[in-house]
């Protein structure tokens, strides 16, 4: 009866990419901000858990946007 499926395959869930430290620093530099100024995501978030994110990581979200087709969003992993 158990047909466990991955959360990230659901049609409501956009693609989440875990960024390396260097990529994260580059993102902060392009926007000229500090990490805490980014939108947040909890470590306990099902998708964050699935990609193995840790507190302090930055996750890049590739959203399917109805206006721009694709838009990039960043979230800081918090407790």
């Amino acid at each position: 009866m158990v047909t466990k499926s991955a959360v990230k395959d659901h049609e409501l869930v956009p693609e989440h990419v875990l960024l390396s430290v260097e990529e994260g620093v580059a993102v902060l530099k392009t926007y000229g901000i500090e990490a805490p100024q980014l939108p947040k995501i909890h470590v306990s978030d099902p998708v964050a858990k699935e990609i193995g994110a840790k507190v302090g990581d930055i996750i890049k979200v590739v959203r399917r946007s109805p206006t721009a087709k694709q838009s990039i969003f960043y979230r800081l992993v918090i407790d």
Partner: peptide, 17 residues
């Protein structure tokens, strides 16, 4: 419930939909 089961980004999409 969507935000809990599928994550905050899915929650955002659910609000929009």
């Amino acid at each position: 419930e969507i935000a809990e089961v599928l994550g905050i980004e899915a929650g955002r999409n659910a609000i929009i939909n």
